[in-house]
C-alpha cells in the first residue's frame, strides 16, 4: 500500500510536480478532472456499490448536475487500480456509474481517480 507516498504527492500539490513530457506544450487530448473518494455510496440489495462521493484534486467548484454523464472514470489507486467505469450521472460531487462495467466494490475512501470526457471502448478490452 503506497498511500503515504500518494498523500505526499497530493499534499505537495500538483503545482510543484509538473515536469516530464509535458515540457512539450501541446493541446490537451481531452477534458479530464482528477478526484479522490470521500465516501462510498449505499450498496443495493445484493451488496453492489455504484456510487460514491468525491472531492476534486486540485480543489475546484462542484460539478454541475450530470455534467459527467457518459464520461470515463478510471481508478488510479487502490484495489480497483486501472479499472474503468462509465459515469451514469452526477449530482455535484456524488458520482454514479452504470452497471455495464460492474459495481465499484473494492474502491475505498482516499482512492484517487480521473474522469475523462471519452467513451469506454468495452469491446477493445474483452
Amino acid at each position: 500500500m503506497k498511500v503515504p507516498a500518494l498523500f505526499l504527492v497530493l499534499a505537495l500539490g500538483a503545482g510543484a510536480a509538473r515536469a516530464g513530457h509535458d515540457a512539450i506544450d501541446v493541446d490537451r487530448s481531452m477534458k479530464r478532472h482528477a478526484g479522490q473518494v470521500t465516501a462510498l455510496g449505499e450498496p443495493d440489495g445484493e451488496g453492489r456499490i455504484y456510487s460514491f462521493r468525491a472531492r476534486r484534486l486540485p480543489a475546484a467548484p462542484d460539478f454541475v448536475a450530470n455534467e459527467l454523464r457518459g464520461w470515463r472514470l478510471t481508478m488510479l489507486a487502490g484495489q480497483r487500480f486501472a479499472q474503468a467505469f462509465e459515469v451514469q450521472g452526477n449530482m455535484g460531487l456524488e458520482i454514479v456509474v452504470g452497471p455495464l462495467d460492474g459495481p465499484l466494490n473494492g474502491i475505498a475512501v482516499n482512492d484517487v481517480f480521473v474522469l475523462e470526457e471519452i467513451a469506454i471502448e468495452r469491446a477493445a478490452r474483452q
Binding site: 504527492v9 500538483a14 510536480a17 509538473r18 515536469a19 516530464g20 512539450i24 490537451r28 479530464r32 489507486a77
Partner: peptide
C-alpha cells in the same frame, strides 16, 4: 522523467500520465 521522480505508480498515474497521453496524441 527529465529530472522528475514519480516514486509510485499512483503518483505517475496522477501527475504525469495525463501529460504523457497528451504528448502521445499530438506527436
Amino acid at each position: 522523467e527529465f529530472g522528475a521522480v514519480d516514486p509510485t505508480v499512483e503518483a505517475y498515474a496522477f501527475r504525469h500520465l495525463p501529460f504523457d497521453m497528451d504528448v502521445a496524441v499530438a506527436t
